[in-house]
Design a protein around this nucleic acid. Structure first.
Lengths: 330, 330
DNA sequence: CTGAAAGCGCTTACAG
DNA sequence: CTGAAAGCGCTTACAG
């Protein structure tokens, strides 16, 4: 392995001068600089990050602990946003995929402590509460929040997301939307229900009876979609819904099949809208699913910026807005 | 920051003895060990990985350069497999999401050089050829291969995958399967076509005319599914296909909608099979899509093991098999 | 503009 | 069983 000392020797100068050239210190004679740079290029030398970290007592490492985020297609964008922001900030992100409260999680924490990470981002695949004790090392919660307010936290603004999407729906002339919501134990569910209802109220439409839970849990807690059980009754009513708002795109898939079975055509007979804009599903459905994209990429980037500069980001919750992706389903 | 020197001072012993305790060297008196361990626990000390790497001249870091793999839901399993294997081997994986031949890729290479990574895994989102020059640092190609055979390479055995899946199909009594294949420029496509045809030949069925390309590219190279253009003609033939084998699950989605439009019921009227077993799509379709899962997790794990032990894994291609996931579509 | 010395926190190599 | 010395490859702090 090549070292600065070897380069100094070849350049008949000191170790320190080589270090200056590498660190772009202007206080080096142009001729000396050129000589050293030539040798560096020739030898293909790259300074050792590890030695730098060691001496400067600065790891430049931000940990990213992901509670299965990286395996969930919707929330993988959280990772991408953070990683791109880390790159821009000259930081190195160390990513750990863990199962909550498992051995993998404690391993990740140990590694991050051993590498003297400057901060940790803790991310979950859906908006939820996380009980993470205050630690020495700054922590940013991503897509989750701390009930005790011990950490900075970045979450989607589910209330506003639902409010805004419902407003778009009503502005397009729909008058009897129904909301097939996520399980009530999911943090987003009641927030969105409120956004849906209040957006209706703002337009003089009472939607308080139009929210239905369409995802339940089986014995092991896995989600089961029951739109196909709910819709036949709903669509048989005399004043049947003119639009079905789904809590997530994969529930919308279930709705597409349920409507097909009932012989009801999407868009012509009933509109469908959703949350997520999940690739590639939303674009593959026919007609294409109009969906509200969650701001995961931006959330990831914001979390990394907060992790780098903890002083500017005190404990507290930041809520982020999404972006409506119009296709053909309403 | 706590150091071994501070612990030694408190324990009235030497730095070296503390190091022995931490590294589980048996040559320490039980009493001394206990005293030191108590102090370590009390102070919550974790040895600095960076100092260890520095002194032992061993980074324990394996780079994972992913050509958009981590953003593609099917191939995220490549990352998971490698990361789990790294954990088991006590290695630290450094993950970089890059765009091929872009600035992000050279950044990743620089970082890995600066960290003195022991090896690099280079992964692509679909089975393809990669022209990567031989480097000082060992490289394993994952889901891609080197035409010049300069690197160890791990890919799916697309020929066998197709052969085996076709055999399952024929064994279930289907006699006129048709294969809606990926674009011909994708490495997997001709391999699978051959597997499909030869599996038929082995059962005395001529499938050489039953392969159709059902994915084309638009002006910017994005895939466009044309099953809905191909199927009407195909299904109108007097001896129409009794099963449609799709090159990937998202193409199967296109097939589901195309068949619905034709009023043809899946399973009752025609079987559908596919490659990928993409979560959550395959399980959401109705009827559930029977699909051949690609061995991405295992491939990722194999790549990491090869990266750790390059001597045992010389340049050459290892092909891996998948696993059939039966649902209800045939 | 340049350099000699010290030291980051460990492990290695050696001596008792 | 224990420890003093050296050194991994840099940057820091200081002196010229």
């Amino acid at each position: 392995m090549i070292t600065q000392r070897m380069i100094a020797k070849r350049a008949r100068t000191s170790l320190k001068t080589v270090s200056r050239v590498i660190n772009r210190d202007p206080l080096v004679k142009a001729e000396t600089r050129a000589r050293i740079e030539a040798i560096i290029g020739e030898l293909g030398y790259t300074p050792s990050q590890v030695a730098r970290m060691m001496r400067s007592q600065k790891s430049n490492i931000i940990g990213f602990i992901s509670d299965r985020v990286a395996t969930t297609s919707s929330s993988i964008e959280l990772v991408r946003g953070a990683q791109d922001a880390a790159w821009k900030a000259g930081k190195q992100m160390m990513l750990f995929n863990v199962e909550r409260d498992s051995e993998t999680e404690s391993y990740a924490e140990e590694q991050l402590a051993a590498f003297r990470a400057e901060a940790v981002i803790y991310a979950t695949p859906y908006h939820q509460l996380v009980d993470r004790p205050a630690t020495d090392i700054p922590c940013v919660l991503l897509n989750c929040f701390d009930p005790a307010g011990r950490h900075h936290s970045i979450v989607p603004d589910d209330y506003r997301l639902a409010y805004d999407l419902t407003t778009i729906i009503l502005d397009r002339g729909y008058r009897r939307p129904v909301f097939l919501n996520l399980p009530e134990d999911i943090v987003a569910a009641p927030l969105r229900a409120r956004g849906f209802i209040e957006a209706g109220a703002a337009r003089g439409i009472d939607l308080s009876g139009a929210v239905h839970t369409a995802v339940v849990r089986d014995s092991v807690g896995a989600p089961v979609f029951i739109a196909d059980r709910i819709l036949p009754g709903l669509m048989a009513e005399p004043t049947r819904p003119d639009l079905i708002l789904c809590g997530q795109d994969i529930l919308a898939v279930n709705v597409y099949f349920a409507l097909a079975k009932l012989g009801i055509r999407i868009r012509q007979d009933v509109g469908v809208a959703s949350f997520d804009d999940l690739e590639p599903i939303a674009g593959l459905l026919q007609p294409g699913l109009s969906s509200l994209a969650m701001p995961y990429y931006e959330m990831g980037a914001a979390a990394l910026r907060a992790a780098i500069d903890p002083e500017a980001h005190p404990p507290g919750i930041v809520r982020m807005l999404g972006r409506f992706v119009a296709r053909a389903s309403f």
